[in-house]
């Protein structure tokens, strides 16, 4: 059969792009944030990440091999990405068995029940994270104190666990403290941006996440539409609120560099499978995430809302894909 010439429809060449290449690109983009996390949280960060990745990949393998009896596709790297993203959303001192449950929910419920890569409507890592957040609220919100951070805001509250800046803000506002006073207790924005704040593994280092985003943009793994539209819409929305009542609402920059916003905007919302296909759709999706995030953060019960916002907008993706079409050639007739 090898001697015969091949006949196939065009095109006869391929770019060489593959799912693996894209997935490993995302993994490389996450490494700076992981390094920062290791620097601040030490061995805990490594342990959580490794457990999460290994368990996600093993669950995918087991499900594909023994339950679905389908081709094993763990080498495509998507389970590693899910594992890493799940770890990025967890505190670095989480017990191993909770991570295992999270990985099982992520891969088992979030991904494989829908038919595996390409068919899941919701971001698997976020499904796992939200499941854990609702099931183990205490463990999931008790963050260890980052190394080398000894600002008063941490020593104020219960020794070992450091709440997130957003948590402090929410708590402060509940007690009637004006925003400016709460801010005094928090480190400077620059410190927050390089990771000196409490939070889950991946979300603390805004700067490292932005480096990852630039890498992914340069390698054309993602387009600018989703991250930029999320960040801009959060900026604009919180900006309006802040201008209207500065004592009640924190300023927009604070909202962007704290919490999971950058992690969500850069790595979670841009997940191929669960985000819209067209540029216009991506912007609608991004703005939706931005607005829902701010609504939850400012008016909701939870201090943080990025995960919920992304999951809610994931649900709208099929609708967006159905109705938001790309601009067809010949549609915008510019015949002047």
């Amino acid at each position: 059969m090898n001697k015969l010439i091949t006949v196939a429809p065009s095109p006869h060449i391929h770019s060489g792009l593959s799912v693996q290449k894209l997935m490993y690109g995302v993994i490389i983009a996450m490494i700076p944030a992981l390094l920062v996390s290791i620097a601040f949280y030490g061995i805990g960060a490594i342990a959580v990440t490794l457990i999460s990745i290994v368990s996600c990949v093993s669950f995918e393998f087991l499900i594909q091999k023994f339950i679905l009896n389908s081709q094993v596709r763990i080498s495509d790297g998507s389970a590693i990405v899910t594992g890493m993203l799940l770890a990025f959303n967890l505190p670095s001192n989480l017990p191993w068995w909770i991570i295992l449950i999270g990985a099982m929910v992520s891969i088992g419920i979030g991904k494989m029940t829908f038919g595996g890569l390409g068919n899941n409507p919701f971001n698997p890592a976020l499904v796992g994270r939200v499941f854990l957040l609702l099931s183990f609220p205490v463990q999931m919100t008790s963050y260890p104190v980052p190394k080398g951070v000894s600002t008063p805001y941490i020593s104020n509250i219960e020794g070992f666990t450091g709440p997130t800046p957003l948590g402090i803000l929410k708590e402060g506002l509940k007690n009637g403290t004006p925003v400016s006073d709460v801010m005094k207790e928090l480190p400077s924005y620059l410190d927050l941006f390089i990771g000196k704040l409490g939070g889950s593994l991946g979300e603390i280092a805004g700067a490292a996440l932005v480096i990852g985003m630039i890498f992914m943009l340069l390698r054309k793994i993602i387009t600018w539409h989703i991250p930029v539209s999320i960040i801009l819409s959060v900026y604009v929305f919180t900006g309006i609120l802040h201008l209207a009542q500065p004592s009640q609402y924190a300023d927009p920059l604070f909202h962007i560099i704290t919490g999971g916003l950058l992690l969500g905007a850069i790595f979670m919302a841009t997940d191929y499978v669960t985000s819209p296909m067209t540029p216009a759709g991506m912007i609608i999706y991004g703005v939706g995430i931005g607005i829902i995030t701010v609504l939850i953060r400012v008016f909701g019960a939870y201090p943080e809302g990025v995960s919920f916002a992304i999951l809610i907008m994931n649900g709208f993706v099929p609708l967006i894909n159905r109705y938001i079409k790309p601009v067809r050639f010949g549609e915008e007739v510019s015949n002047g």
């Binding site: 390409g118 985000s275 296909m277 067209t278 790309p326 601009v327 067809r328 050639f329 010949g330």
Partner: peptide, 15 residues
Amino acid sequence: IRCSKCISVCPMGLE
């Protein structure tokens, strides 16, 4: 995997 690369390269703006 719904990466939407086909949409971004389509010169006719199709999906």
